[in-house]
Amino acid sequence: MEWDWDFAWSIMPTLLAGFRITLIATFLGAIVAAVLGLVFAILRRSSNRWLSRGTSFVVEFIRGTPLLVQLYFIFYVLPDLGLRLPALMAGVIGMGLHYATYAAEVYRGGIESVPRGQWEAARATNLTTRQTWLHVILPQAVPPMIPAMANYLLAMFKETPLLSAITVLELMNQAKSVANSSYRYVEPMTLVGVMFLIVSLLSVIALRWLERRYGRVSQ
């Protein structure tokens, strides 16, 4: 099968429309993941043993099962339980929830990387809890988190094609529908691959810069 430039060019607008949805889904998913991840991380540190154990189990469970199945669960099971969500929203919640469990680990790693002495010093100088977090712990905990978070953001971006399985019209789904109507697979599939590759390679360069700027944190 020959590569047809004219055809490749003609499907570009459709693919770019899908690409826009991909970016929106990634952006919204990242927000959900960042917020929920913080909630998970805080609940896990709770002094109530049942609460922290329960959260740990939920996080382990979500990390141990495939995102695709979780998306199906949200998209097919929740409507039966009376909660009907639009496809994109179901996708954003599913991706956000899945990556929140990874983000929780990053938060935990960042907070634990602050030396014990800093907590003790904060207490010794009689700072309130709020002051301790805002002025001592967070300024030291956040910078090492940034490269790790960016890494998961990239990982999530690469997982967005899964949303096509729950009928979100993102890049992959647009490519599939083009392929199915024209019976040409080479151009759409390759173009999708190239688009992902370009974004990833650019992100890798940005990541290297972030790592130099804020230092590497081991996952």
């Binding site: 690469k158 094609p161 899964l162 992959m172 599939m189 992902f196 590759l197 890798v204």
Partner: peptide
């Protein structure tokens, strides 16, 4: 390494399944 880490498993799978047979 960069190619396979840079694109998602989903895209690779579809590419292998739909595009490779044409070659």
């Amino acid at each position: 390494i960069e190619f396979f880490r840079g694109t998602s498993i989903f895209v690779q799978l579809f590419w292998i399944y739909f595009v490779l047979p044409m070659t």
